[in-house]
Design a protein around this nucleic acid. Structure first.
Length: 431
RNA sequence: GGGACUAUGGUGAAGAGGUUAUCACAGCGCUCUGUGGCAGCGCGGUCACGGGUUCGAUUCCCGUUAGUCCCCCCA
């Protein structure tokens, strides 16, 4: 084997990213805001495996959807199982609901997750192959208050993070009773105009007719103007359901936009569908949070007919907006207040325990035990902006004392080592 | 799957067909093993990879790879 001059270096797989220490504050902030609100509203956290049976997604998300047909990471185990890295969180949550017999819990069951998702598509702004979602699901209740609560919470979460300029777009796509008639007339309409729409939409007419509605091609938008509208096809129940959801939004004073052309890419949606989009479409054009009702998914996955609804929020996208808007986000770690400087072998060894004493007293302390020179250590202490440096050298180790130095003034005092924690507490309490 | 743009120390930039490849910041080391903010000096790049044009390419051309962005689709 040839010996390379310099060994190959590695980089993260395409579309996947390290989340570095300096970015952790955003992740912590978003998770904290969202999770605490969800918990306040009675949602309970669930964690599911990264891998699931491929069939779960084939059936749950839909065989013909882009997500399943071309974006899943699939692998075969040594035992011959076909598994897939989850591309979304709803199907796994429903699987867990069924597997653990949550139907016997008081309904609805309200769950949330915060997890990595995987989709093998072309990475670009706000779209990654591994990305993170916080999602909420309410299972076992058909009433519109469920949709309303989910929408309310979504709105609340986005607001609580301080995101400015976002719009809720909402629509209904009917259910298994009234949608077929609508789809039929939509298909008829587009078939008769096949020459006036783009090639892709001709395919959609056959395979996924709803999707022609959100085609961005100018010609298709033109044709769309005269197309049949779902509102005219809704049956009484679906119409009422949608009406009540909107009434709730009005009452809660959550602004929204009805977009009759909003459809979702996943097969399992029924009735309510919605999306929160940032208003500033120049820097961010993809939805921050989206979801809807999926009354047929649970039985599609082998359970009893169980109504449900949910949403998922894209964390990378949310964080992108927070950064764009220069939102003030609290620092992740607490600033150290004390720096422990050690000199000499004996002191260095005893420093470990001294450090622990201070830490256990709840004082933020840092050290650099690998460094020997007092100068270098004090320089770091200064950089960190600590209030006090503790100098623990050979002489101090022998005398069982520590020098406490106030960084701002340079004033030092020698105190017995067993008094140091109390002394620090006393001094830190002042101001 | 289709398209556009980019590629120079860790980061951000500059550069010209021939230089020792420049600067700032960060890192590490030294001046300096008992006292921080300052300073000085040093270390670190096969200029993404492969090929072509040329006396000579890091610079121009082609290809590859990677990254970014757009379409598609989606969180």
């Amino acid at each position: 084997m040839a010996i390379a001059k310099k060994s190959k270096t590695f980089q993260a797989p395409k579309g996947m990213h390290d989340i570095l220490p300096e970015d952790q504050k955003y992740w912590r902030y978003v998770a904290k805001k969202a999770e605490s609100l969800l918990e306040d509203y009675g949602f309970e956290k669930i964690e599911t495996p990264v891998l699931e049976s491929t069939d779960l997604f084939r059936r749950g998300v839909g065989e013909e959807t882009d997500i399943v047909s071309k974006e899943i990471y699939t692998l075969k185990t040594k035992g011959g199982d076909e598994l897939t890295l989850r591309p979304e969180g709803t199907a796994p949550t429903v699987r867990a609901y069924l597997e653990h017999g949550m139907q016997v819990r008081p309904q609805p069951v309200k769950l949330f997750y915060n997890a990595s998702m995987f989709r093998h598509d072309q990475p670009q702004k706000g779209r990654y192959r591994q990305f993170h979602q916080i999602g909420a699901e309410t299972l076992g209740d058909a009433s519109e208050i469920v949709d309303a609560e989910l929408l309310f919470l979504a709105h609340k979460i986005i607001e609580s993070m301080g995101i400015k300029g976002h719009t809720l777009t909402i629509n209904t796509i009917g259910d298994q009773n009234c949608r077929p008639a609508y789809l039929k007339s939509l298909r008829d309409y587009y078939k008769s105009r096949a020459k006036k729409i783009c090639a892709q939409c001709r395919v959609r007419t056959k395979e996924n007719i709803l999707r022609v509605l959100d085609c961005k091609e100018e010609i298709c938008r033109e044709v769309r103007k005269e197309a049949p509208q779902i509102m005219d096809y809704l049956d009484g129940e679906c119409k009422n359901h949608f009406k009540h959801v909107l009434e709730f939004l009005d009452e809660a004073q959550i602004p929204y936009l009805i977009d009759p052309y909003l459809v979702r890419g996943l097969d399992y949606y029924t009735r309510t569908v919605f999306e929160f989009l940032p208003d500033d479409q120049t820097t961010n054009r993809s939805s921050l949070l989206s979801g809807g009702r999926y009354d047929r998914l649970v039985d599609l996955l082998g359970g009893q007919r169980t109504p449900a609804a949910g949403w998922a929020m894209g964390l990378e996208r949310v964080i992108e907006v927070l950064k764009d808007q220069q939102t003030n986000v609290p620092e992740a770690g607490l600033k150290p207040k004390v720096f422990l400087v050690q000199l000499g072998e004996v002191a260095k060894r005893r420093s470990l325990l001294l450090f622990e004493d201070i830490r256990r007293a709840g004082i933020e302390v840092k050290s650099s035990l690998g460094r020997d020179s007092i100068k270098a250590q004090l320089r770091i202490a200064h950089r960190l902006g600590v209030r006090f440096a503790l100098i623990f050298g050979q002489q101090e180790a022998i005398d069982k004392t520590v020098i406490i130095r106030e960084m701002d003034t340079g004033v030092q005092e020698t105190v017995p080592v067993e008094k140091i924690v109390d002394e620090l507490k006393k001094r830190l309490k002042k101001s």
